[in-house]
């Protein structure tokens, strides 16, 4: 990481820390959701962008994380922070197990299988035998956590929403660091090698099936942690908020944010949080029509997403006369 990137990251973090004191409570909540979405998108991007496995059902893992947090808090009485790692671990396992049959499926077929998972999930959550835990159609209501006591001792009185924002920010920073280190390391290289040329990757001694199912698990873990955070932030889980459109929203987020790009997750999260708000004022159905048009537009014209556009713009701006432009990697051609 060069000096300029580091300065940029520090600036963004400072800005993120100042944000809750500068905006209204409602905006603060929206930015908390942006952070949560960015973790979920990061998870999907690890799977789809870096490993080339298409998932149209990641809303399922988001839902598992959310339900796990809700059930642990309301029925087992666990504190909210303890549910995050547990939801992550559960989704890691669930993702790994779903990844095993998914190994035999490629491209369109994997998309199909995960699409089926996404469509049938709300029905599974409503199942009456599970109602004791899931609350059936009504879902579960969660109480909002308070800021810890020691903060007020430090003269830092945060209200609940502000505290939740900082808590989410801390988790998000941790997850982004984790993703960066993972993707730059041996496993990350193996993931990308499998995406680009599975046969060559196997010849290099990579255990394809292990890495692929592991990637599925890790990706599900990220998305599950995001789901748990969302349950705490929204204070409510119900089957119908995890329909297929949630999974499609995630797909839209990574395509528009930028495939195979870590900062792309953040751009995508900003997009899926704020663009529908703006479009909502036109008509109830408009956000999806606009999402769809954006998807088509990006696929045809800007397949590297916002992250690619920013990178390209930066290269163009700072290019010297005899300097070779650095290459922008693409998944979509």
């Amino acid at each position: 990481m060069n000096k300029r990137t580091l300065i940029g990251i520090v600036l963004v973090l400072l800005l993120a820390c100042a944000l809750p004191f500068a905006v209204s409570e409602y905006r603060n909540f929206q930015f908390t959701l942006v952070l949560i979405y960015s973790i979920a998108l990061l998870g999907l991007n690890i799977l789809t962008g870096f490993n080339g496995q298409i998932s149209l059902g990641h809303g399922a893992f988001y839902a598992i994380g959310a339900y796990c947090a809700a059930i642990l808090m309301e029925q087992a009485g666990l504190p909210y922070w303890a549910t995050i790692p547990l939801a992550g671990a559960l989704c890691l396992g669930a993702g790994f197990l779903f990844g095993l049959p998914a190994l035999r499926l490629e491209g369109l077929y994997l998309a199909l299988a995960t699409f089926a998972l996404g469509v049938s999930l709300p029905q599974l959550l409503k199942y009456h035998r599970l109602e004791e835990w899931t609350g059936g159609v009504q879902g579960i209501v969660i109480t909002k956590p308070d800021a810890p006591e020691f903060l007020s001792g430090l003269n830092l009185a945060l209200n609940q929403d502000q505290w939740l924002y900082f808590f989410t920010l801390a988790v998000a920073v941790l997850m982004f660091l984790l993703a960066r280190n993972l993707l730059r390391g041996r496993i990350g290289r193996a993931m990308m090698a499998i995406r680009d040329n599975p046969i060559a990757a196997e010849a290099m001694g990579i255990n394809i099936s292990l890495v692929k199912s592991l990637t599925f698990g890790i990706s599900a873990m990220f998305t599950g942690i995001a789901g748990a955070l969302s349950a705490i932030a929204v204070q409510f889980v119900a089957p119908d908020s995890f329909n297929i459109f949630l999974s499609i929203t995630f797909l839209i987020g990574i395509v528009i944010g930028g495939l195979a790009s870590i900062p792309g997750a953040l751009y995508g999260a900003l997009f899926i949080q704020f663009v529908p708000n703006i479009a909502d004022e036109i008509s109830k159905a408009a956000p999806w029509a606009i999402f769809g048009l954006f998807l088509l537009g990006f696929t045809y014209l800007m397949p590297t997403g916002i992250a690619g556009a920013i990178r390209l713009g930066w290269v163009r701006l700072t290019r010297k006369a005899h300097h070779k432009p650095s290459r922008v990697t693409t998944i979509l051609p």
């Binding site: 080339g52 298409i54 149209l56 491209g107 797909l251 395509v255 495939l259 998807l295 979509l332 051609p333």
Partner: peptide
Amino acid sequence: FPALAVVVVFIA
């Protein structure tokens, strides 16, 4: 295009 782009267009 690769499968992903096609799936994205269908979803759109």
